[in-house]
Amino acid sequence: MKMLLTVEFPHEPFNTLVKSGKCGEVIGRILDTIKPEAAYFTEQDGTRAGLFVIDVKAPSDVPAFAEPFFLTFQANCKFRILMSPEDLRNAGLEELGKKWRD
């Protein structure tokens, strides 16, 4: 299942890793491990953030995606299910609309 993994990096230890020149290497190692379909970096709520499209095959895979960020950066991780247009077409919205209309 495709999911959006949002990672919020606290200023520390991120700042220390940037100053030591190790941040790029650490992030590269994590990305090589989790193999996201897409990866973007941005600001979110005043802190550094990463957005990663990942393929989660089973709920038990979630720690393998989150722990590298938890353990290395003390980061917050949020997982959201993603739907393609085809997924949305297959969701049965018409039937749900009929079932739940006023």
Rank of each mutant, 00 (worst) to 15 (best):
C23I: 10
L71S: 09
I30T: 02
V53I: 10
E43T: 12
E8Q: 08
D55R: 12
F69C: 00
E86Q: 08
R48H: 06
G28I: 05
P59K: 11
C77Q: 00
E25I: 15
R29Q: 14
D87H: 12
M1I: 06
V56N: 03
R101A: 08
E95R: 07
C23W: 04
L31M: 14
L51G: 08
K98V: 11
L4F: 04
K35S: 15
I81A: 10
L31I: 13
P85S: 10
G92W: 08
F79D: 00
L31G: 05
V26N: 02
P63L: 04
K57S: 03
G46L: 03
L51I: 10
A38C: 08
G28W: 07
I27K: 06
L4E: 00
G24D: 09
F65M: 05
I54D: 00
K98S: 06
E95H: 07
I30L: 03
K78P: 10
E37M: 15
A38R: 12
I30W: 02
V18T: 07
V7S: 00
N90S: 14
T33N: 14
L4N: 01
E94S: 06
R48L: 03
E12L: 07
V53D: 01
L93Y: 02
P10E: 04
F69S: 01
V26L: 03
E12A: 08
R101F: 14
K22W: 05
M1G: 04
L82P: 07
P10H: 04
I81Q: 12
D102T: 14
T6M: 06
E86N: 04
G28V: 09
S20D: 10
S20T: 12
R80K: 14
I27R: 04
E94L: 08
T42K: 11
M3A: 08
P59F: 08
Q44W: 10
T47A: 12
F73P: 01
P36Y: 04
E67S: 09
D61P: 11
R29E: 15
F79W: 01
G21W: 06
Q74Y: 12
K99V: 12
T42F: 11
E12F: 12
N15Y: 15
G24L: 11
V18F: 05
I30D: 00
A49L: 05
A64R: 13
L93H: 01
L5I: 05
T33Q: 13
E8D: 06
K2Y: 13
F41C: 02
V56L: 05
P36L: 09
V18G: 03
F9V: 00
G21D: 03
E67W: 07
L88R: 15
